[in-house]
Design a protein around this nucleic acid. Sequence first.
DNA 1: AATATTTTTTAGTCAAGACTAAAAATTTAT
DNA 2: ATAAATTTTTAGTCTTGACTAAAAAATATT
Lengths: 220, 220
Amino acid sequence: MATSFAEENYLKIIYRLSESTLEDISTNAVAELTQTKAASVTDMLRKLAEKGWVNYQKYQGVRLTDEGEKIALSVVRKHRLWEVFLVDKMGFNWDEVHEIAEQLEHIESEALINKLDEFLDFPKTDPHGDPIPNKEGILPELSYMHLSDLKENKACVLMGVAKDSAVFLQLLTRLHLSLGAKLMVKEINPFDRSISVSINDSEPVFISHEVAKNILIKIV
Amino acid sequence: MATSFAEENYLKIIYRLSESTLEDISTNAVAELTQTKAASVTDMLRKLAEKGWVNYQKYQGVRLTDEGEKIALSVVRKHRLWEVFLVDKMGFNWDEVHEIAEQLEHIESEALINKLDEFLDFPKTDPHGDPIPNKEGILPELSYMHLSDLKENKACVLMGVAKDSAVFLQLLTRLHLSLGAKLMVKEINPFDRSISVSINDSEPVFISHEVAKNILIKIV
DNA sequence: AATATTTTTTAGTCAAGACTAAAAATTTAT
DNA sequence: ATAAATTTTTAGTCTTGACTAAAAAATATT
C-alpha cells in the first residue's frame, strides 16, 4: 500500500519516540514533533490504525505494528543515508543537513536508495552517529554510553549525539567536539554536574551536564 | 512566495510546452502532460495567474510571465542536474531516471542544488542532451539539428534526443545510439523516409524517420 | 451562415490533512 | 473521594488539488 508524505512522517516520529521508551506514545508527544495540533494527530492515528500500521486505542496512546515499523525503518534508512550523502559528498556541516534530509527521505525509489547506500560504502551510522538500518531493516548494534555517565580519567571516543538540533551541534562544533574525537573527563563538579573534558589531549574545557548527557561515547 | 509541488509541476509543463512553440499553450495540452483533466487545469491556471506566474485569459490559453519562467527554469535545472547525478554517479541508464528526477526536482534547497552542480562538474546538458540552466537561469546555447534533416555522407555526433520516453530511449540503446556516438547517414529511402545510418563506423543499420526526427546532432 | 464538433469553463463534490472550540476522559491534587 | 487540571477526542470548518457533468465559447464543416 502506498504511503503519503504525511503518513510517513507520522510513522517516523512514532518510531523515534518509541526508541527511547517502552510505553505507548501519547498524542501530545506526536503533535509536538509533527508540529501539528493534538486534534490533527488523533485523526491521523485513526487512519494509520485502519491501515494496520499502528495499534491505537482511544486515550491509550499509540505504538507501531510490525508493518508500521517496517515502513518507519525504511524512512529512517533513507533519512540517514541522505544525511551521509549531504555531509560526505556535498560538503555540508552536520548541523545543516536535517531539513534537507526531511525532504529527501520521502523520495520513492528502492533502486536509488540501494545504489546510494553502495555509493556511500554502506555506512553504519549517519553524521550524528545514529545507526542506519540496512536493506532488510536491520539496525546495526551500537551500544554507546553517555559522556555524563563516564568516570574521570577514562579515555573514550565520541561516537554520536543523542540530539541533533542545529544549535546543539553548532555548540559542539565550536568546542571541537566532532565524531571520532578522543575524550577524557578530567573533573566532575558536584555542584552542577558540569564536567571538564580534554579533547584530543588538549587543555580541558568545561561543558554542562546537559551537553555531556547528549554526547554518546565508546570506551577505548 | 512559496511554490507547492503541484504549482511547480504546472509551471514546468507550461515551460516545456512553450519551448516548442511561440503560441499560447492550451488547457488541453497542459492537462495531457500533467495527467489531469481540463477542468482541473482551468482551476490551477486561475490560481497561477493570481500569483503572477502566468498570463491567462479565459479560452485564450496560457503563457509564463518572467517570474513564472524563473520558477520553471529552477525546476528544470534541478530536474536535469539530478538526472546527471542519477546516471553519472548512481549508475542508472538514461531511460530509468525520469520518474525519480520528477520527485527530486521538488527538493527545496538552493545550497544543495548548487553544491550538486559543482559535484557534477557544472554539466551543460543532462543525459538526454537537454541544456541545464545555470544558477542565474541562463540556458547554454545549443543549436542542434535533427538527424532527419541531415544529408547523406556527412559526419555528425549524437548530441541529444528530442523525446525522452523510456521506450524510445531503450530502442536507441539497443541500436547503440548513445550520446557522443559518431553517425553518418548512408542512404535516405524516399518511400518512407527511413534512413540507413552507420554508427561509430560500423555496418549501417535502418532507422525510421520517426526515430531520426528525434535524434539531435551536431555536424563535425 | 447555420450547424456540428471540439475545447474550455462553471458548478458542485470529494479526499487529505490541517485547524479551532467544545466535550469527554484521564490524571493529579486536595 | 472529589475537585481541579490536563490530555485527548469529537464536531465542524478550511484549503489544496483533484474529479464529473453540464454549460458556454470557439472552431470546423457543410
